[in-house]
Amino acid sequence: MSTVITANGLSKRYKTSLALDNTSFRIESGRIVGLIGPNGAGKTTALKAILGLTDFQGELNVLGLDPRKQRGKLMEQVCFIADVAVLPRWIRVREAVDFVANIHPRLDRAKCEAFLARTRLQPNQRVRQMSKGMIVQLHLALVMAIDARLLVLDEPTLGLDILYRKQFYQSLLEDYFDEDKTIIVTTHQVEEVEHILTDLMFIRDGRIVLDADMDAVGERFIEVMVGADRAASARALKPLDERQVFGKSIFLFDGADRATLEALGEIRRPSVSDLFVATMKGTYA
């Protein structure tokens, strides 16, 4: 397994705020990493740094290259979809495929056309005549036909209906992802990506506050449903979070002893969104 991204002491300061605060992390190849954080936590800045779109302090190595200096070379190996509506509105489907096929050394045109044949897109259709869902279909057909090693997705399904959203991740898993590829995805729709992620990174105020693979998350964090009578003893174990459902309390524990918790009540694996809410408590306060 090789390392795709190594970041060491990454910092980025805007005029009024610190978007990245001396952050370090590593991403290995063959992983699907969810970079999850509240608005303004530094997700997009981190992605922009990885893509060489912004300057920063610290060390960053992406596929053995420095994104600040070797951007042109890097982008042969990296693809990204930033939100859905970034394809130029004047371009036609035919022109987009023609252009990318001729300037990108790693695009497989036949593959791209096969992906497009599965959609309703017409060769002469312009982006401005498409719905958001169709635009993302076109973008995805282009990106999936490129044999890149790293795919960066920044809120790729924002504003899409549920059919397109499901289809988006399903296509990625079935026709694109393999052990040589790495996907980084940021999204607020955590429930949707929760089952495809292999790794989870929480970012808050420019720092990575949680960085673990999904198996480790399942072992470390435990949710337990406790009746009112035993709530006090559960509280004594210092839970991360507590909430009430139907007269019972649900406690979220980080690294507590499983046997002790089982004695208190019914235990289960917390959802990523519950974990997220618990971790980010007080962010906007």
Binding site: L51, M75, L87, P88
Partner: peptide
Amino acid sequence: DDRRDRSLLFWKSLPLS
């Protein structure tokens, strides 16, 4: 124009100097 409509992000995702 491509910065305003953000299609810059698409052009910048391609290996173009």
